[in-house]
Structures are given as structure tokens and as C-alpha cells.
């Protein structure tokens, strides 16, 4: 894996962390919880190198 690809995994990981943190802070909107989780699914699968 080259350096640039590693950066992309780091960016993806950062997004997952931000989404996760927002999800934990979310108290009100079930809508936003669902959307946050949905967005996280492909990012997590990319980090796990599944797809």
C-alpha cells in the first residue's frame, strides 16, 4: 500500500470517528441517528478492506 492510500484510510477513519462522536452526542433526532449509522457502514467496510 502506498503512502497516499494510507492517507485515504486515515481520512476515512477520521470521518468514522467524527460521525461516531456526533452519534454519541445525538440525543434528540432518531432521523440523524439512522443517517449517521447509514453513512458509517460503507466507511467501516472500507476500513476493514471488505469492499
Amino acid at each position: 500500500m502506498n503512502v497516499i492510500m494510507i492517507f485515504y484510510y486515515l481520512i476515512t477513519a477520521a470521518l468514522v470517528c467524527l460521525l461516531g462522536w456526533n452519534l454519541i452526542r445525538e440525543k434528540k433526532s432518531a432521523n440523524d441517528m439512522i443517517l449517521g449509522l447509514l453513512v458509517m457502514i460503507p466507511l467501516v467496510l472500507r476500513l476493514l478492506r471488505v469492499k
Binding site: A14, L15, L18, L19, N22, D32, L35, G36, V39
Partner: peptide, 10 residues
């Protein structure tokens, strides 16, 4: 960053 992600979520 957290605010950006929240704003972009939809």
C-alpha cells in the same frame, strides 16, 4: 470538524 459533519449528514 464535528459541526461540519453534522451539517453535511443529510
Amino acid at each position: 470538524a464535528l459541526n461540519t459533519m453534522k451539517r453535511l449528514l443529510p
